[in-house]
Structures are given as structure tokens and as C-alpha cells.
Design a protein around this nucleic acid. Structure first.
Lengths: 149, 149
DNA sequence: ATAATCTCTACTGGCTTTATAGAATTAGTC
DNA sequence: GACTAATTCTATAAAGCCAGTAGAGATTAT
């Protein structure tokens, strides 16, 4: 399960991608439109700002806007910023690799092999899908799912 | 990330699948062989027993053994027993479906669509891979990964 | 009986999640 | 310059989860 924060972050970014370029959206507007607790959203936007995804303008009529184009912000980036590693095991993580202390040999670990197969298609989707895709309703890509009837 | 408990459970089941049929393995043997805290493993085996995956014999020379064939215990079953839902969002869970209160329309939710694509291949792997596969080193199935060079 | 083992409940310490509160800072407006 | 509206930043708190520990009780073999 992804955290509520991560879901809020994605929704906020999608909302920001829809405002007219050059303008800014205020925390309270996003919060009420997306039903996110305002002060909680503040913290989330702050984290996204520290990661360089959004910019803010302070003071009266301030607000937030995307710093990078929505087509360059991937789901994977957002999830890693908010929730940390995407991988199901530390020994499969890109951003927080750690050896399992109790694992005899990483390269023959059967559990690792199974989860390596699990994480691979997950990464493909999350690293290729951007905020712009989601905002435009381009999230579904049936051609990439040939195994489903 | 899967929990440590889930990883321990998978390792314990793989260990149990390797003992001679009819016999039983003791908690302490599995614990020392797999480097799992014994009392912690006890709880895990108890949960697996309550789910009908293993059986136990109490008293002197007691121990645990698989109740179902290893080829009928899937990774998905183990993960759901120990960690709960596999799905990244409540609205995509099979065993614990819940509507997102803050979601306007589930069928047009773009975030849901993205994660629906994520979870689908994950389920395929986890529901098709069994303890027997892992124990036999059959975890890797290159034919199913045509997209990798 | 005794020793070994599982069973069951409870508990703890630390961490994470989901917020809430409030003071400080900044920027626009009158 | 004063006022107001907004973000920024730090602190805090309640709740729950995770990993592990503890110990009494039940059961079985010898």
C-alpha cells in the first residue's frame, strides 16, 4: 500500500498541472478541491518543493506551481520522495540498497529472485508514467498488457 | 517493502518444504538455520498454522510441517496472511477492498488506473509462484520476461 | 515425573503515519 | 507604513504498526 501522503502528493501535482501556466494555486484551493487536510497538504508540498518538483510564491496571492513540466515528473519520482524505496526488499532497491544481514548469498536467494520479477514491471510502469499522462487520462495503455484477455 | 515477518515466513515455509515428508522440523532448528529470532518465528508459524498452511505437533519431539503441498502454497497467500493486502491502493485490493472516501469517481480516477497497471503483473507473479518453485530454484522464468534484453 | 516443545497472551520500545498548532516570514494592497 | 493573506518552518501529538521479548500454560515423548 502506498501512503496517504503519496496519494495526496500525486493528486496535488495533477491539480497543479492543470492550472494555467504562469499562475499559482493556493494550498487551500487544492486542499478543498481534493479533500486533503490543508496543513497536511502544506507539508507535502513543502517536501515536493525541497525535491525541486514545485515552486512556491509566498505572501498574499502566493501559491504553488510546477517547477518542471508535468511530462517530466514520473510517478516513481513522487513515490520515492514521499514513501521511500519502491522495491519490496532492501536488496532490490535502487535508492536504498541494503544487503539482507540474514541472507547467505544474494545471487542465489530464491525469495529475491521472485521479487526481482515482481518489481521489474512495476518500475517500468511507475518510471514511464508521468503526471502529464495521468492529467490527460493517458494512464491506461492497453497495448502494454497483452497477457490480459 | 514487505515486512520482515513476511520474509521470515517465506523462508520458513521453504525450509519446511525441504524436510523429509512425514517428519517435522522444530522452531529452534529453523530459527538457527535461517537466522530468525526464535520467539518471533514462533508467532509467525502460529499465524501460518491458523491459516491452514502448516500443522504442528506439540510436546517433546514436536515441530512443524507443511499441511498443504508446497506446490499449492503461493507467495500471494503468504504475503496476504502476514502483511495483508498486496494492492497499492485500498480500491484495488481483492481481500480488503475499500472505496477511497476522497475519490470522486473510482472508474475515472487516474491514479487508480496507473496503479491498476502496476498491480496486475505483480499479482500474476505472486499468485503463480509457489513455495515449491522457490525451493526448487524455479523462481526465474525467463520466457515470461520478453521485454528484457 | 520430567524435559522438551508448541500455544497463547501480553507487553515494550522504536518508528511511521497522519495529522494539528502556532509563530515567523514574505508579499501585495490600501 | 500598516494591514492582511499567504507560505514557511518547527514542534508536537495521537494512533497505529513493526520487531522482538517474556512468561505462563498445555501437550507429548520418554
Amino acid at each position: 500500500m502506498i501512503s496517504r501522503q503519496a496519494k495526496y502528493a500525486l493528486r496535488a501535482l495533477i491539480a497543479l498541472s492543470r492550472i494555467t501556466p504562469g499562475s499559482a494555486a493556493q494550498t487551500s484551493d487544492i486542499a478543498s478541491a481534493e479533500k486533503i487536510p490543508k496543513k497536511f497538504l502544506e507539508q507535502i508540498l513543502l517536501r515536493l518543493k525541497n525535491q525541486g518538483m514545485v515552486q512556491s510564491r509566498r505572501g498574499n496571492r502566493g501559491g504553488y506551481a510546477l517547477l518542471k513540466p508535468a511530462s517530466e515528473i514520473t510517478f516513481a519520482q513522487v513515490l520515492r520522495t514521499i514513501d521511500g524505496p519502491i522495491a519490496p526488499l532492501p536488496c532490490l532497491s535502487i535508492i536504498a540498497y541494503a544487503r539482507c544481514e540474514d541472507c547467505k548469498d544474494e545471487y542465489t536467494c530464491e525469495i529475491r529472485k521472485v521479487f526481482a520479477r515482481v518489481i521489474e514491471p512495476t518500475r517500468q510502469v511507475l518510471e514511464r508514467t508521468t503526471i502529464a499522462d495521468a492529467a490527460a487520462g493517458r494512464a491506461i495503455d492497453l497495448e502494454s498488457l497483452p497477457q490480459m484477455a
